[in-house]
């Protein structure tokens, strides 16, 4: 297997475009995943009996093979990016819902009680006390979901929405390993960079977790 290094400088535009597509599909999925997971998790956390049901449902979604899920969505959304985003969103739920519920579990009862006792209404307590304190665990979920989505976008090549995954497909079809290597390397790089950005965001958003003790 030889790599044709000359291919790279000639295809910077294409690589940039595919990377941007890839990232935007993955991030959209994580964004919509959070939009769905947060309320679901809050409800599952508040009403204990619903917890098993909600977590079970997100687990079941996760067990559907990704290709099958894209195919199932085809009649509804067609060969569009929407299909890819909807499919991947469904997969992010398993970590996002679970981590949000577990994050809310880590909120000290005293902090929640103090907020209520000082006259904060439930929604205010949720946004100003519970979610901020659950943030480290939620962010851990967001990191997993993001890396997972970045890898799943390639699978959506099957419906022509694979981002960098398009490079593997082309590489295999044309028996041109350089493309496969380029696709793998860029996907990996993208995942690493995205994770590093999230770690930084979390560090900045949770100053209380890394200040020295008394």
């Amino acid at each position: 297997m030889t790599i044709e290094w000359g291919w790279f400088p000639d295809h910077i535009d294409e690589m940039t475009r595919l990377t941007a597509d890839h990232l935007s599909t993955a991030l959209s999925a994580v964004f919509f995943g959070l939009l769905i997971a947060l309320p679901l998790a809050v409800i599952a956390h508040r009403f204990r009996p619903l917890r098993g049901f909600v977590l079970g449902l997100s687990n079941i979604l996760y067990t559907i093979p990704s290709i099958a899920l894209f195919v199932l969505l085809l009649p509804v959304t067609g060969l569009t990016r929407t299909t890819a985003v909807v499919g991947i969103t469904a997969y992010t739920l398993v970590v996002l819902v679970r981590n949000t519920v577990e994050g809310l579990d880590t909120v000290p009862a005293k902090a929640r009680e103090a907020s209520t006792a000082m006259g904060a209404k439930p929604l205010r307590t949720l946004f100003t006390v519970e979610l901020p304190l659950a943030l480290p665990v939620i962010m851990a979920g967001v990191r997993v979901a993001t890396v997972m989505s970045i890898s799943l976008v390639s699978v959506a090549s099957a419906i022509g929405q694979g981002g960098l995954g398009q490079l593997f497909i082309d590489g295999f079809q044309r028996d041109f390993p350089t493309l496969v290597i380029a696709g793998v390397a860029l996907t990996l790089l993208l995942a690493l960079v995205a994770d590093a950005v999230l770690v930084t965001v979390q560090w900045l958003a949770t100053p209380w977790t890394h200040k020295r003790g008394a």
Partner: peptide, 9 residues
């Protein structure tokens, strides 16, 4: 409250 119940964040 006991153990202050301060908001850690």
């Amino acid at each position: 409250i006991q153990q202050s119940g301060l908001f850690p964040h």
